[in-house]
Simulated assay, not measured.
Amino acid sequence: MTSTPSPVIVVAPDSFKGSASAAQAAAAMARGVRAVAGADARILELPMADGGEGTLDALLATWGTEPLTIETTDALRRPCTARYGMSQDGTTGIIEAAEANGLPQVSDVPLQPLVADTHGVGLIAKRLLDAGVDEILLCIGGSATTDGGAGLLTALGARFLDASGTPVAPGGGALSSVATVDQAGLHPRATAVTWRIAVDVDNPLCGPRGAAAVFGPQKGASPDDVTALDAGLRHLAQVLGADSLAGQPGCGAAGGMPLALVALLGAQMVPGAELVAAAIGLRGALEGAAVVLTGEGRLDTQSLGGKVVDAVRRTADPGARVVVIAGAVQLDAAACRDAGLTAAFSIAPGPAGLAELQADAERLIEDTAAQACAALGLGHAPGAAGR
């Protein structure tokens, strides 16, 4: 008698930031699945990313290449070292912007939201342009900046000038003073390459859901700072003749970094999770999968707007059971059902502080995956062990 093959179970989580990388989370979920479904369970581990932290590593693993390093500057223009990457054939470069302008790089000093800028990211892009790539993939999550990409373009040779023809100061606080943009000194290959910007949110550039209002406070912006930054981004869009971008979903990512690149370089915005999914072959892996486990640090409404959970739920087969494992679950059962999710589980075993959860994250992810698989009926019947 032919035995029925065990179902395919795919684990495709994002990182649990500050607790476990995507690869560590995937391995922990797989261990939890095996504890219930048995050693012969067919499990496929696919660490994911959404255009923010971990995207560089995910794509370099797919390409089979090692990270490169460059001496650049952080969001306050202090010297720092950043990683970037290139495909094996040298045609495509990848930048994880937070390597240069990320919040961790400036966590040793008080946050300066009005002056932080993306100049260091532009220095990495210049290196790739000099190397002759045909395409640049710019992953922009986790930034400390709200400058509309002006600093990046400055590093590539553009000049943002006030009414007197003087270059404006770095940072989003000076954007309202921009009168013209001089592109005469722009890198000669800046407009010749294809730019794809991997975004992990669908926020517009300006307004109550814009870059300054939603993400500014995380970068140290006061209410007055938020007002100034929002006005500066809107003004820069007008100067660039790109008013329509102010309301375009995704343009508010990373402090509006896409603005100047889309307006001046013709860059394309792409949901980061979808781009990573294509690079690692997620669609093919999910074909025929009976159960899909995904997850991230916190499951909330933003998770359904272009992040890893969103990409996984949209890619999975209609009949697959999609389960989310997260550090915190802020969607109720009805919201999960409406989103096409079978269930969501928090790794917290009870009242616990963030530090406690982070210290034991991998074991908790493993245990929660086991509990989820048992609830789905993937394991042996109670009492069957050892028979």
Score class of each variant (00 low, 15 high):
F215P: 00
E274W: 06
G210A: 11
Q248S: 10
A242Y: 03
P223Q: 10
A221V: 06
L261M: 14
A211F: 06
L229F: 07
G250F: 00
L259G: 02
V292I: 14
V276K: 08
V214G: 14
G272P: 11
G220A: 10
A253Q: 03
G216F: 04
F215I: 02
G241Y: 02
A277R: 02
D243H: 13
P249A: 08
G220F: 13
L245D: 05
F215E: 00
A213P: 05
G288M: 08
A246E: 10
L261K: 10
G241M: 04
P271A: 12
M257E: 01
A231E: 12
H235K: 11
A273I: 06
L259H: 01
L293G: 08
A260L: 09
G284F: 02
R209T: 03
A290R: 15
M257F: 14
Q218V: 09
G210F: 07
A228G: 08
G241P: 12
A242N: 08
C251A: 10
D225P: 04
K219R: 14
K219I: 03
E287G: 13
V239Y: 05
D243N: 11
Q218T: 12
P258Q: 04
G232P: 05
A285G: 11
A231N: 13
L265K: 09
L261N: 01
T227C: 12
A285S: 11
G250N: 03
G252E: 06
P249L: 12
D224T: 13
A273R: 01
A279F: 04
D225Y: 04
G272L: 07
K219E: 03
H235I: 01
E274L: 11
Q218C: 11
P249K: 08
G220L: 08
G220E: 15
A253W: 01
L265W: 04
V214C: 08
Q218F: 09
F215W: 13
A221K: 04
G252N: 06
A290K: 12
A263P: 15
H235D: 06
A263R: 01
V292F: 10
G241F: 11
G250Y: 00
G210P: 08
L261F: 06
Q238C: 10
G284I: 06
L229S: 08
D224F: 06
S244G: 14
L282N: 00
A263Y: 02
Q218K: 14
A228W: 00
H235L: 11
I280F: 05
G247W: 01
P258C: 11
G247L: 05
L275G: 02
L261H: 06
A277E: 00
Q218H: 15
A260Y: 09
P217G: 09
S222W: 15
L236T: 04
A221T: 13
A254E: 03
D230L: 06
A213E: 15
G288A: 15
V214E: 03
A212P: 09
S222D: 09
Q268V: 09
V291R: 07
G281D: 04
V214R: 13
A228I: 10
V214Q: 09
R283M: 05
V276D: 01
A242D: 12
L275S: 02
A277I: 15
A213G: 12
A279P: 03
P249I: 09
P271N: 05
E274R: 15
V291T: 15
A273S: 15
V292D: 06
A246S: 15
A260D: 03
L265R: 05
K219L: 07
A290F: 05
G216I: 06
A253D: 01
V226C: 12
D243S: 13
R209G: 00
A221F: 07
L233V: 13
